[in-house]
Amino acid sequence: MQTIVWYKFAAPAAFYPLAGRMIPWCWGLAALSGLAGLWLGLFVAPIDFQQGEGYRIIFVHVGASWMSMFIYLVMAFWAAIGLAFNTRLSGMMTRALAPTGACFAFISLWTGAFWGKPMWGAWWAWDVRLTSELVLFFLYIAFIALTRAIDDVRRSDKAGAILVLVSVVNIPIIYFSVSWWNSLHQGASVSLTKSPSMASVMLWGMLLCAFSMWMYSIAVALIRVRGLILERERNTEWVRALLIQEEK
């Protein structure tokens, strides 16, 4: 039973309306949890006795970093599915997720810099996580540039999938090498994690913000997938029927 449902929605024609129904819910959840999270983070959470008000950027920063990493994994998942089963939808998923992931990586880098300025006195430190995040950002850019450069849809999807899978295998190695490099070159390393036990209200704020970003990513990715479906299936019967219906 499960498998039947799964295959049914793997077809773009069936997925299109499903995605359409999901999008408003995701937007709603994103808005609600985002507002709640920011309210907790900006107004309820106490001032950090070491970092003052500046620390409040973590409510955006942490979620964005999580999402940027998580989205790459999801892309790798879809890439593997696409290469293994040759499904059309997976290529579109991978493609639709990339800009959101790149965006979060970018936000994570900037908020990291904003946080770093008062904390370390510098916009940028060659910290392991910041550096790895930057590399991740490069990987997103490479994916987007490669898939946009190939006009043929099938080739573009497959090439992108190979790149994502190769990168995902490489990411742990890169992370290891960067932390190795960092441990040798930087005597006094700045640590972001070893903050004293976090107040639970801060944790909740962070989790809510992360959840909101999660919902936002799904919503935006689904919108993009719907666009891609219409573009790629424009010559099929069901898209024509749909367009005629919408015009009425």
């Binding site: 590399v135 490069f138 990987l139 490479a142 540039a145 450069a149 190939i150 190769v166 490489n170």
Partner: peptide
């Protein structure tokens, strides 16, 4: 691909960091 040289460096350089 057109502009394959630049693309190649974008694709390859991050993977060569180690």
């Amino acid at each position: 691909l057109r502009g394959s040289g630049v693309l190649l460096s974008l694709v390859m350089l991050p993977l060569c960091i180690p």
